[in-house]
Design a protein around this nucleic acid. Structure first.
Lengths: 158, 158
DNA sequence: TAAAAGATACATATTATATGTATCTTAAAT
DNA sequence: ATTTAAGATACATATAATATGTATCTTTTA
């Protein structure tokens, strides 16, 4: 058939941007956890993975990634741990989703010029929609997730 | 730990709305295929699945669903087949994605009142972002995917 | 009534995701 | 200096989601 399209999701699903995985879930929860730590305190991978009852090893990878991205600081060795490297008011939710859903690849058209096929039109339409999704998320910061009454409370608790 | 959150994606990933699957891919391609058929013509599941080299059976389900939704008309028996039930100008892309990604469930809070937790705040934030995604898609119609030169051409070809 | 089409049910295969095991490196406490 | 507790890294396995395959039933019309 003349108007055969090989694949649409291959072009649209830019690395599963929207497919939020547990990886992102754990990452966001870790950030919330760290945000609620009293100032000057650290948390360990073991502590967080046990608290949330999630795989220590998945969390390991996530923590490593957040550390590389300078969102948190990690410290090896005895007495080490991790803590936020930025204020919760400066950690953007949309950016975190983009970071954690890092399988995102910018898919180039196979052979230019190609953007005259229905699949390629769809690609642009979905790219716009994806951008709308991210832009919407980018209106929020980690601090927006914390409860007003939690913030002062927890800094006293420990 | 006091601020334990059981799951985020469980509340946010509303039925994998964003996780566009091949199911949706095939569905959209089928609609494009049908839109390019000469007026009065029908296509069969076999024809389309062979053209796109996709699973006949998956397509079977998709066609069935599109038929139930009155987007297309299906006709059994010898000489049967399927064709668009609406003009391409009236088939909305966002609506089709919502239809085809039909695993969407509106997730209710487990036990009200619950929307005071970080997870629940995130739920709202992601719901807004998802809506932005859909709204963006809803600006387009099936007709927007067809090439200007294809439309008249193909109606002559067969 | 035979053939061609969609409808339906269920089994299997494939792929993506998540978890588990093991070991290495680093750094502080002893 | 040595031990210990922490993250870093690599790879294997398990689980779950997705996609495909096989079979049969129902409908319709030539």
């Amino acid at each position: 058939m003349y108007h055969l399209i090989v694949s649409i999701i291959g072009q649209i699903n830019q690395g599963h941007l929207m497919q939020l995985t547990r990886y992102t879930d754990y990452g966001l929860r870790t950030l919330i956890y760290l945000a609620l730590l009293p100032a000057g305190h650290k948390a360990s991978i073991d502590e967080i993975s046990q608290t949330y009852e999630i795989s220590r090893n998945n969390l390991n990878k996530i923590v490593h990634q957040l550390g590389k991205a300078k969102v948190i600081q990690t410290q090896r060795g005895k007495g080490g741990g991790m803590f936020l490297n930025q204020a919760p008011e400066q950690i953007n939710i949309g950016d975190m989703v983009l970071l954690l859903e890092n399988t995102m690849r910018v898919v180039e058209c196979d052979k230019p010029p190609c953007c005259i096929s229905p699949a390629c039109k769809l690609k642009g339409i979905f790219a716009d929609a994806t951008q709308a999704f991210v832009t919407s998320l980018q209106a929020y910061y980690l601090s927006d997730l914390l409860l007003e009454e939690q913030k002062p409370l927890l800094r006293i608790l420990v």
